[in-house]
Amino acid sequence: MNEKEKVTNKTEENREYFHVIPNSVFYDDNLTDKQKLIFSEIFQLTQKNGYCYASNSYLSRKMKVDRTTIIRAINRLKELGYIESELTYEDYSYRVSIRKITINGSRANLHPSGASATMQVQECNNDGGTNATGDSGTDATYNNININDINNNDIYSRADEKNDELINQVVNYLNERTGKDFKSTTKQTVSLIKARVRDGYNFDDFKKVIDTKTNQWQSKPDMNRYLRPQTLFGNKFEAYLQEYSNNNRFNNSNDINKYDW
């Protein structure tokens, strides 16, 4: 990053603007205070175009919380209907190339346009209150961040962004097949799956490895404990995947010979 980019990023980080939390979100007891603040940040970023592409890594750095907190907040906000996200995958893979987040204006009780341009306050005394005013005497507005002005690497963080959707799919499938309860947010698990994705493997490959080793080890008490991410998705992943291919070739050969009279 050159000096000009550093100055630009520093300016954006220090830019003063208001965060707004709609009453529906603010008073929702199903959300933690941190999740409400994360919604507010997302809401602010969507003001320019009605959507934003903020990655978990970007929000983590901006909100000064770990990525697990961001992931849980995003999932919770989606579950409650406050936000919607649209994932775009790279060709012929489960790797997410971009995530588009929008605010559900009707759920959050926003202005019909999906955004409120002014910050209003209720009357604060019996004499009657007024809307918050700026120096000009007009309704004070909060400044919008132009997300196109923020360094693209901060917004997309493609090289640094862990494929949360794929990780969830893999861990959920592993739990389903083994009856165990591994977490998709464990650092070692995330790191291993991400490493295999960088090697070019996809969800189908993970399923094949899980199926192969589950069939071999699940009924064996001394081996069942190895049905875990650090064993299955480690440096023997390719060998386990090869076992699946060899087993299929053997079974297909037997099917042919069975009818070769």
Rank of each mutant, 00 (worst) to 15 (best):
V197L: 10
R198Q: 07
G114N: 07
Y201F: 12
N126H: 11
K48D: 10
E238A: 15
A159M: 08
N14L: 15
I167P: 00
F237V: 04
Y89A: 04
N75C: 09
L227D: 00
G81L: 08
G134M: 11
Q230A: 11
T32H: 02
V7L: 11
N126K: 14
N49P: 00
V20W: 02
Q120R: 11
T32K: 05
M1N: 07
D205S: 07
R76C: 15
S191V: 00
E86F: 08
E3L: 10
F206R: 06
T185C: 05
Y173S: 03
L227W: 02
I98G: 01
F39W: 07
N49K: 12
D181A: 14
D91K: 13
M63P: 00
T212R: 02
I38D: 00
Q120E: 14
W261P: 13
L31V: 05
C124R: 13
P112T: 10
I193A: 02
G128P: 07
D28E: 11
K100L: 09
L80K: 12
A140L: 14
E41T: 11
Y53E: 12
S136F: 10
Q44K: 14
Y89E: 06
F18R: 07
K208V: 01
N248H: 07
I71Q: 08
A73W: 03
F43Y: 15
V65W: 02
Q44F: 04
R95E: 11
N235P: 01
K64N: 15
Y82V: 13
F237D: 05
E165M: 07
K183Q: 13
S60T: 09
G128Y: 09
N215T: 09
R177H: 02
N153C: 03
Y94M: 05
R95M: 07
R177S: 10
R249F: 09
N104L: 06
Q230E: 15
E123S: 15
D28P: 02
N109M: 13
Q188S: 14
N254K: 11
D91P: 02
L232P: 00
N163V: 07
I83A: 00
N251I: 03
K258A: 15
E86D: 10
N251Q: 12
N172M: 07
T186Y: 05
V197G: 01
T138N: 14
E161K: 04
E176N: 09
D199N: 09
E238Q: 09
G234P: 00
E90L: 12
T212H: 02
D127Y: 15
K236S: 13
N246I: 12
N172G: 08
T231A: 12
Y58G: 03
D154C: 07
H19C: 08
E243K: 07
I38Y: 00
D139A: 13
I167Y: 03
K100N: 08
S93W: 00
N109Q: 13
E161T: 05
R196F: 04
S184A: 15
R67K: 12
D127F: 15
S106R: 10
D260P: 03
N153K: 10
T88Q: 05
F250Y: 12
K34S: 10
A115E: 09
L87M: 05
L45F: 13
T214Q: 04
T214E: 02
D33C: 05
R107Y: 06
